[in-house]
Design a binder for these strands. Structure first.
Lengths: 111, 111
DNA sequence: CTCCAATATTCAAAGTTCTGCATATAGTGA
DNA sequence: TCACTATATGCAGAACTTTGAATATTGGAG
C-alpha cells in the first residue's frame, strides 16, 4: 500500500467523518433529493447544506441534476455506498422503496 | 438513524481519516506489532506514533499487550476490520500469514 | 539500587476545518 | 424586463487537529 494510496483513502474517510455530510449521504443513498428537502430534514440553514454538498460534489461522491429551479443530488460513488452499507447497515428495500415526503419541503417531489 | 448514532459513526470515520492512523491499522490488522516496529515501518518519530496509538487505544479500536519492554498492539474492533476490508481490500492470507521482519526493528519478533 | 531501553505524556505552535452570515447567481413566470 | 424562489459562493472568527520537541514513566539487567 503506497503512501499516496493511503492518503487517498484517508481523504475519503474524512468526507464521511462529518455528521452532517454522513447524514446527507445516508439520505441520498436511498433516493435523489433536492437541497430544500435536505434542508427540511436536517434542520440546518440552506447555505450550510449547500456548502457540505459542494464538498461532496467536488470530491466526486455525489452528482447534481437540475429540474427547473430545484437541484437534485444523488450518490454517485459505489465505494462510498459499500462503506455506508458496512458502517450504517444495508440500504434495505423497505427503506429504499418510496420517496418519503416531508411536510416542510415544498419541492415537486414532496408535494 | 438518530443524531447520536450518526455522530458515533462520524467519530469512527474520523479515526480512519488520518493517514498515519490508517496505515497503523492496515499493519495491525495483519499482525500484532510493537511500537518500535511501527516506528521503523512508518519512519516517524516514536512519540508521534505513540500519540496516534493512544487515540486509537482510547477509542477502543486497538488493544495493547506488554511483552517485557515491548508493547504489542493489535486490532480489536471487528467493525473497523470490516471497513478496512471494504476500503483497502481484503486482508489476504498471503499478506496475513507470516510476520514481516523489518531490518531496522530490533524487537524480539523481528530479530 | 542504578542505568538503560522502550514507550507514554504533556504542551504549544502551525495548520485545517467548521460554521454562520452576507451576498451572488440562475432559472421561471408574469 | 422584473421580481421571486432555489441554490451557490465568499469570507472571517472560533474551534479543533496535527505535529514536533522536551520530558516522564515503566520494566528489566546488572
Amino acid at each position: 500500500m503506497t503512501d499516496q494510496r493511503i492518503e487517498e483513502h484517508a481523504v475519503r474517510f474524512k468526507l464521511l467523518s462529518h455528521p452532517v455530510r454522513l447524514q446527507i449521504l445516508d439520505i441520498l443513498r436511498r433516493n435523489p433529493e433536492c437541497v430544500c428537502h435536505l434542508e427540511a430534514v436536517l434542520g440546518k440553514p440552506q447555505p450550510y447544506i449547500s456548502q457540505q454538498l459542494r464538498v461532496l460534489r467536488e470530491a466526486g461522491v455525489i452528482v447534481d441534476n437540475k429540474e427547473g429551479l430545484n437541484v437534485f443530488y444523488q450518490l454517485a460513488d459505489p465505494e462510498i455506498a459499500a462503506l455506508l452499507n458496512v458502517a450504517l447497515g444495508p440500504n434495505l428495500p423497505e427503506r429504499n422503496g418510496a420517496h418519503q415526503s416531508v411536510l416542510s419541503c415544498e419541492c415537486p417531489h414532496c408535494s
